[in-house]
Design a binder for these strands. Structure first.
Length: 551
RNA sequence: GCUCUCGUCGUUCAACGGAUAGGACACUUCCCUGCGAAGGAAGAAAUGCAGGUUCGAUUCCUGCCGAGGGCACCA
């Protein structure tokens, strides 16, 4: 809160300490008993001033007594200055437009490209593939809620060794390339063969596919691509993602190779390959075109970037959401991109790293066939949710069960830091209790139900600014700051954890109070319910989790 | 070998260098003749080890131990 910073800066000036208001740390308290905001300035400058922290705190507090919107200023603990906001401040948030509550426009006019999901077509989509999609989708929404124009980009791999393995498998099994399960089986067989004695044959297929020299093979590949894409898009639809732009590795290869050849000052030859010497920027050397003259993934990423530039010449920032294991790799690629494309030099080009996913039941491997596919997981969860949906108020129980399933899996992935590994406990994800997506959905629906009842009873929401602010409203007040923080840090989990706090505060309050009690305080309680509903709704949207009105 | 991450209750996940390290699951107790019990209330339980910087360290620095990535023609 700017007024508090200014007041503290002024009070410090009176003590001959000159500090810019922005440099003063002012944070939300972790305990509401300590007010709404707290500052540690007294402790920071105690030594410099040669006084004990509490003494200075008292002086500063006295100097910052009359701040608009602040009800009281107190010194506590080792020398914290605590500020408690005035009730009117909370009344103001009720005047916000519900759909926009929590948003901001600091990224207005920015065009941000976010590439995410980007799976290997042909390989079965396991839950690990889902992580990038889930995190990427949430991050795009955080940007959008800050006013940015975001482009969702998908860059699937439709060529290369995994594809060759699968095509080989299709030939051997005579599998139907229109059937997604046949593709999965063919991949498994091809992969096993590659490690046994099929390497030579499969490598030959790979080469033929790259060169498009065998019409039969190319046809199989194209059919498989179509089948996989269809499957992918169905899954993305269930998860709530719709891409603005999609392009493929088979397109980027030739483009990337040309770029490399055109910039032989940036790249150089080494042992028959064309490499980028990353050492010049304190990175490592990587091969962009191999000695067989084929573009590697590195070159393909250059081509990828050119396609993005062509499609969105007015971009301001570009992000790629993929696993942490690609970190060092992408640093080199970004360095090369900045040399090749001058327009990228001063713009944000970043890797958003997501962690690994491991199962509690052991390592997942497509070879051993113990992959949990995204599809099967959602199906499992949906089955469980159907049990709960049996006595639900929702009209479409089937749809609801799926929304609950999506909430369960998304929350489990988004509750932790983006780059941290995720230990996926199937049993736990299937549970709808406790800190979970379904808990948030349930609380949201509960708020919604109360609002419906209020409408029937003709009780209109009206926040009573004379009432002592509840912990609930004090917590909700922080929502816009939470959203901004999450957006700046690129961390959806900040929103996820906050929403749990809000839901928990609401449910505690709800258990103690009767909202529609016919008394004069009822409109006030309805107002609180409504703002809780809006907070949960917008927060869930940011996470990419559906917020049904009836569950 | 070089390098980057990460070690927090039994488990899983939090904590801009701040106040009594916070949730959830599991465990032990309670609470539906009140707007939704997918809920609420209470209890027990943790910072890998050793130093350093600081008024103050889970957080920053050093070393050790432990786990996982990445280091040239795979993606």
């Amino acid at each position: 809160m700017q007024q508090i910073r200014d007041a503290l800066a002024n009070a410090l000036k009176a003590q001959d300490v000159s500090v810019a208001p922005e440099e003063i740390t002012l944070e939300h308290t972790t305990d509401f008993a300590h007010g709404d905001y707290a500052s540690n300035v007294a402790m920071v400058y105690a030594k410099q001033l040669g006084m004990n922290p509490r003494e200075i705190a008292e002086k500063l507090a006295a100097g910052a007594r009359d701040i608009e919107g602040v009800a009281s200023v107190e010194v506590a603990g080792p020398g914290f200055i605590n500020f408690t906001l005035a009730p009117e401040v909370f009344a103001q948030i009720l005047e916000e437009e519900a759909d926009e509550w929590g948003g901001n426009d600091i990224l207005k006019k920015e065009t941000i490209l976010v590439e995410y999901t980007s799976p290997n077509l042909f390989k079965p989509l396991h839950i690990g593939n889902l992580i990038g999609n889930i995190i990427g989708e949430s991050i795009t929404r955080l940007f959008e809620f800050s006013g940015a124009d975001v482009k969702r980009i998908n860059y699937p791999s439709d060529i290369g060794l995994p594809v060759a393995k699968c095509v080989w498998g299709l030939q051997k099994t005579g599998g139907d390339a229109h059937d997604i399960h046949a593709l999965g089986e063919a991949y498994r067989i091809g992969n096993a063969a590659y490690e046994a004695n099929g390497k030579v044959e499969i490598d030959a297929i790979n080469k033929a596919l790259y060169e498009d020299s065998d019409a039969e093979l190319t046809k199989l590949r194209e059919r498989g691509v179509a089948t996989s894409r269809k499957h992918l898009h169905e899954l993305c639809k269930t998860l709530g993602t719709k891409f603005d732009y999609e392009f493929f590795e088979s397109e980027t290869g030739p483009i990337g190779k040309k770029i490399v050849e055109k910039h032989m000052g940036v790249f150089e030859e080494s042992d028959g390959a064309i490499v980028y010497k990353g050492e010049k920027v304190e990175l490592h050397t990587r091969v962009f075109v191999n000695s067989a003259g084929l573009p590697t993934y590195e070159a393909k990423d250059l081509g990828n970037f050119e396609l993005k530039l062509k499609k969105y010449p007015k971009w301001d920032r570009s992000y790629i959401v993929v696993g942490v294991e690609q970190k060092e790799y992408l640093r080199v690629v970004f360095a090369a991109i900045k040399e090749v494309f001058p327009e990228a030099k001063d713009k944000v080009l970043e890797h958003i790293a997501n962690g690994f996913l491991t199962l509690t039941t052991g390592k997942m491997s497509s070879r051993e066939g113990n992959v949990v596919t995204g599809e099967s997981l959602i199906e499992d969860l949906t089955e469980v949710a159907k049990g709960h949906a049996a006595d639900s108020r929702a009209d479409e129980k089937e749809k609801l069960a799926q929304e609950v399933a999506v909430a369960a899996i998304k929350f489990q992935i988004l509750k932790g830091g983006t780059s941290k590994d995720i230990i996926f406990d199937r049993e736990r994800a299937l549970s709808v209790e406790g800190d979970s997506g379904p808990y948030l959905q349930y609380t949201h629906a509960r708020c919604h139900a109360i609002m419906e009842k209020a409408k029937e009873a003709n009780v209109k929401a009206k926040y009573d600014a004379t009432a002592a602010p509840s912990e609930l409203i004090r917590l909700i007040y922080r929502f816009p700051e939470i959203v901004l923080h999450a957006q700046e840090e690129l961390e959806p989990h900040i929103v996820a954890n906050y929403l749990i706090q809000v839901a928990s505060a609401f449910n505690s309050w709800y258990a103690k109070e009767q909202i529609l009690d016919g008394s004069t305080s009822s409109p006030h309680k309805v107002a609180l319910t409504d703002i809780t509903r809006a907070t949960l709704k917008n927060g869930l949207w940011l996470l990419g989790i559906p917020a049904p009105e009836k569950v």
